[in-house]
Amino acid sequence: MTIDLKTVKHISKLSRISIDDQKAKKLEKDLNSIFKWIEKLNELNTDNVEPLTSIAETTLRFRKDQILSKNIREDILKNSPKDNKDYFVVPKVVE
């Protein structure tokens, strides 16, 4: 199966990564060579194989529903690119 330019642009949209035409063409070439190589997996019949979803076969642990980190708002907001003491700031979303 080949990945065409239209698909590359669709994936870039899904990935929320803008790409120009030149980059898209390069990606088309790279992705096709990678997927051609990946398709080796189709040689294998895996009809009766259980997928491996986690290597550590443990059931997730429950913990008490309690707050362990307190008063960290300032610390967390320190790394935000738009400065505001109380909130993360984003472009207007609701008209």
Partner: peptide, 8 residues
Amino acid sequence: KAQKVRKL
């Protein structure tokens, strides 16, 4: 498919 091969 990859998860199944991972199992193998």
